[in-house]
Each structure stands twice: as C-alpha cells, then as structure tokens.
Design a binder for these strands. Structure first.
Lengths: 338, 338
DNA sequence: CCAGAGCAGTTATACGTAAAACTTCGACTG
DNA sequence: CAGTCGAAGTTTTACGTATAACTGCTCTGG
C-alpha cells in the first residue's frame, strides 16, 4: 500500500510480519516444518493475506528453472474434440499442480510473431496433436519434453506417443458395413497428411480387399463442411455404378456428405449409407443420426498429460492405445438391391 | 555446448563473441544504434545463431515487469465461435508483438489448481467473455487491465467493454418474424446469467409487446443440444395454442429445438419457424438450414484485443457496438393459418 | 562443565536479462 | 593545447524468489 501501485513482494510481507524475506518464502512454500515456529508462520500468513500478496511467477520461474506449465498444441479449434482433450489434460494437470495453456495452431496468423517463440524457458513440456505438427517447428518444441497425440510411433523420434486405436475403429466400421452387405465403398478422406488419417485409409483398404467383390475408391477433401460437400457431390455424381457406402474420415466430412446427398436427391440410408469418426454433437443433430466411431477425447487428454508427467519424471511412459467404439445409428442400413 | 545440457544464455553468447553480456543484450534487443559497431553486432548475431541462443522468458519478464502476453478467458470451448474470437485477437496481437493465451473456463476442474492463480505477474492483461465471468474471480483479473466481451457497460466497473450489437440482431429477428405474420412466440433462452442473453430477452419482449395481439413465452435451458431438446419438447407439447415461432438464444439451442420438433412430428418451417443466433457451421448442416443472426467472431476478437492494447497504452478505448446481420434461410416462413 | 544437537530464524547468493552509469580512447573545436 | 564530444564498449545493478549456508541460543547427556 505504501509503495504506490506496485504489487506487494515477499519482502513487503516480511517487513509487515517483522521477519526476513527468507522466512516468508519458507512459510508460504510449506517448507517450514522445524524451521519456523507455528506462531511466526501464522504472522506471516496473516500479513500475506492482508497485503493480498501473490508470488511473482516470473521470478519464481527464473529461480526454479521450471514453470509447472505445459503447452497443448492443437489444430485450429474447429471442433469440440480438442475442447475435450483440453479438459482431460487440464484435470490431470490440476491433480499434479500443473497448468495447461492452449496454443491453437493459428490460421492465417503466420509465423510473424509466435507467442511461444522463446517459450522453452517458460514451459516445462509440450503435448501436441499430430494434426498441428506444422506448428511444432515454430514452437521449437524440439528442445522440450514432448508427447505427441495420434502420431506415428516410429516416425516421431524420441517423443512419446499416445494414440487412439483408430485402426480398430476403422475395422469396426468396415466390418459393420461389409456385414450389412455393402461392396462398393467410397472413402471421403481428410486431405491432411497425418498418421491418424493414413491409418484410416490403410485399414479400410485392407478390410475391403479381403472381401471378394468389394472395392473402395478414395477422394480427399479439406476438413470443412463445404469442402466435403463439393468433393462428395462430384464423386457421387460421377458416371459408373454409384457407391452404396460412404466412409468419412470424420463427422464434419460426413455432414458435408449429407448435404451432397441431399442435393443429389439421394436418401440416407436407403440410397447411401454414411459413417463418420469422432461422435461430435453434430452427429446426433443431423437427420438421420450418424453412425460413427466414438473417440473419448477427455481420456485422450488425460493419457497425454499423464504421459508427459511421466516423461518429466525421467521415466518412459508405458504405451497402449486407447480403445474406441462404433456407435451404430440411423445413417447405415443394408444397401438397396438394384 | 561446454556447459552440459543447459540452454545457452546471453553470457555464453557474449563469451563466444568475445564481448560482454551487456553488448549481447544491446545487439539482440535492436537497441545498439550508435552503441556497438556494425562488425561487433555481426559477430554477436553470428554467435547467437551458432549456439542456438534463445532468451530466457522468465528472466526477461522479471526484468521488464511485462510479458507482452494477454489472457483470453472464454467459456468452456464448446463452439467454434470462440475459436473465431481467438483467431481475431491473436491476429491483432501478433501485429503488436503480443501473444495470446487461452483459458477455457474449466468444467469440473474446480478451483483446486488454477494455472493462472498468480498469473498477474506473468500477464499484461485479460480479455474475458462475460459468459466466463465466474472464472474471472479465480483468475484475479481485478488487478489487471481488463476488457470484457459482451458485458453490461454499466455493470462492469471500470473495465472496458466491447459488445456485439445483439440488441439490434434481436430486433431484426423480431421484425422478420412479425413481418411474416407470427404472433405466438416461444423464446428458448440460455439459462446463463449474462448481459448478452438478458438483452436478447428484453429486446424480443419489447418488440413483441408493441405488436397488438402478439405474445411471447420464455423458457430457459442449458446451452446444450440435449438440454434444449428436453426444454423445447415439454414446452411445445404443453396444452393450449402452440407457438408458431421459436426464437432461440443461439444455434445450439436451435438444433435442440429441431430435434424436439422432429420428435413431436412438427414440420419446419410449416408448423414451426425457428431462429438462432451465431451462424455456426451447424446452422447450415441441418435441414432446413437455419435462419439466424450472424455474429462476426473474428472481428469481435480483433476489437477486444485493440481495446486492451489501448488500455495498456493508458488511454480509454472508444466504444461502439459491432453490427450483426440476420441471415434468412429455410427455417422461417409465414405461419400456417389454422 | 562442556560438546553436541536441535530450534528458530537470518544472511547471502544465484537464476538470466535489460539498462543505467561508467570508462576509455581518439578526433575535433576554439 | 586544454577541453569536449561521440563511439564503442564494459561494469554494475535490479527485478523477486528459493534455498544453501550460517548464527545464536537453549537444552541435554556424560
């Protein structure tokens, strides 16, 4: 109060309590057992309370060389999926007295100024989605303990990986549709180079090729409703026998596919079965509701944070993919025989 | 390199370049005009490059007492709306060499450990959505320069405000529906206490009450599809004359209303006209497409950041609401006469 | 009666940076 | 030729914290 408008420091608290700055640090750091008397500790806490003291993080971070803060790098925040990942990661972080800061890979902001350009000094580690891998170089995460989400375990040198078992998810989709009798597949793929999408394509192709008479064609589209709409419309309107099942890499693409089908006068699921991946809110907002692979985003975030904490602890995280589950709804049915 | 695995400091660079640490700071801080010769500056830059030097942010922040980092506080990241706000804010921030960090008001994480508990020392300012006002106390934003988004200009003591002209948006909705001939309105309101929703209710009630024979009933629901579905279903199934127009506080609520209508066998827009607010992706994903009030989220973020920069500059930001626009689509039509 | 051991603190230092204040030296001015 | 000035640095200090190392002081056991 006496020093104008600057925030009180531990020295101010010390002065108010009639002790040294070191004593304040000991008491507030909960490291005072056997060093400071109960009575003095009370005085210190009282003084800190009255002055509204809060430690200066910059100073603490400098002193300790650690920040108990990790960065979560995600693709542009376009869906609630990464909101779930954040929630899970933040929950586990809180249990270990860590904080999580979000860095959505900026669209159109460019590398002009990246807020974490020199952040390795201010962060203890990074959790990054492989879909935002491009942002990683800008962030210089190389110097930091790093956990990759949904990334090729072999390709990510040294970094720990936490993956959803998306291969199994795609297996479930393929078996569901093949079991219904579908043979002509169209795969509406995301046009992003990422392990998680490569796996989808690979698994679908593998399963289909094992079934006699079944075939799959793949088209790529940007993960936006409009992009998917355009791509699906041209593919479905193409000459030759029309596919009876449209497998989409995620729910957004599926929504675009719905719109394409509507434009072409195709009925779902009678003329065309459609599946997605994610199980976002839109999956049940559309009519008919979407058959899709449910991904547990929160668990994904939790596992990512736990893995990072393990790395920070100097140990190697055990791996093991996170199971996923096919949710069958109204957008899939046996194909109409021509 | 010689010092083991620790990151190089400005002192290491100085040693490598054969100058003092101060010289390094001058050169790299671009403050060396007339203080250091061109040749020496080159040597310093070269050495920094070779060592891979990057300044320690904690030390810099401590020294300067500023961080050029602001915090954006948003409600739980459930829609792409706040992704747009972030994008806009980050773009303006980048132009001024600032960084933006996201703090999604945690759901279910509780105040156990909030990563910004003592952050005032590590942040220069805060931009907060009024929908996340509860998180603000946890963040102790009171001590920091603060800009509120969509908050009551009178109620937010001292803090600057940036608002969407949502009152005008609701006026457009009301006039559109009244013009179509609707007289029995149901208002599906968000159950969050926030200026931006209060204004919606107030404006709608005002406009409707000015029209002879028109009336509006209001029900509140959580801003989730399920919550809206339940609330809308009970309200629409209630005895008495059914409303012909359902005005929703945002697009998510509208999606819930669509599902309720579908369950009750009501056709949109023949039996029921529905409107939303936001113009999210789902607005055009559903069938029929939703008549809604388009909010320019990116512009909102830009204006918020600009206002904060003005405050940080010691000046008072000029206000002026951001215009919004009604987008008429297929979910509204004249009421069927009974 | 004195060595040693707790107790209850204090003093001093380091983290890495930015910048104010100082130094050195040659060139120029009156 | 004394004095001044500018260039090109260097030395020093401060930011606020955490903690290692130190200081008295009081007991206690042998």
């Amino acid at each position: 109060m006496a020093r104008g408008s600057t925030r009180p420091t531990s020295r101010d608290v010390a002065h108010a309590a009639g002790v040294s700055q070191a004593a304040v640090s000991l008491v507030l750091g909960e490291k005072w057992r056997g060093r400071v008397s109960e009575a003095t500790a009370d005085r210190v806490r009282q003084a800190a309370q009255e002055l509204g003291y809060r430690p200066n993080l910059a100073a603490r971070n400098l002193r300790l060389g650690r920040t108990r803060t990790v960065l979560l790098v995600v693709p542009a925040l376009t869906t609630e999926f990464f909101a779930g990942v954040y929630t899970g990661a933040a929950r586990v972080a809180a249990e270990h007295d860590f904080g999580v800061v979000l860095y959505p890979s900026p669209q159109g902001i460019g590398p002009a100024r990246d807020p974490f350009g020199s952040a390795p000094a201010a962060l203890d580690g990074v959790i990054a989605s492989s879909m935002a891998a491009d942002a990683l170089t800008a962030i210089h995460g190389d110097q930091l303990p790093l956990v990759m989400l949904d990334s090729d375990p072999d390709g990510s040198l040294g970094a720990a990986t936490v993956n959803l078992d998306i291969r199994d998810g795609m297996r479930q989709v393929a078996e569901h549709l093949l079991g219904l009798g579908h043979r002509r597949f169209l795969h509406l793929a995301a046009d992003i180079a990422s392990w998680t999408f490569d796996i989808r394509a690979d698994e679908l192709a593998t399963r289909v090729s094992k079934t006699p008479g079944a075939q799959v064609r793949t088209i790529a589209a940007p993960i936006t409703i409009e992009g998917a709409l355009t791509a699906a419309e041209t593919a479905l309107a193409a000459p030759g026998p029309r596919p009876t099942a449209l497998v989409c890499d995620d729910d957004k693409l599926a929504v675009g596919a719905y719109k394409a089908a509507r434009r072409l006068g195709l009925r779902i699921p009678d003329d065309l079965s459609i599946t997605g991946v994610d199980d976002l809110a839109i999956a049940t907002a559309i009519d008919p509701e979407l058959t899709t692979v449910r991904l547990d985003a929160e668990l994904f975030g939790e596992r990512g944070m736990k893995a990072l904490l393990t790395v920070l602890d100097g140990r190697t995280p055990a791996d093991g993919d996170i199971p996923v589950e096919l949710v069958v709804r109204g957008s899939t049915a046996p194909p109409h025989l021509p």
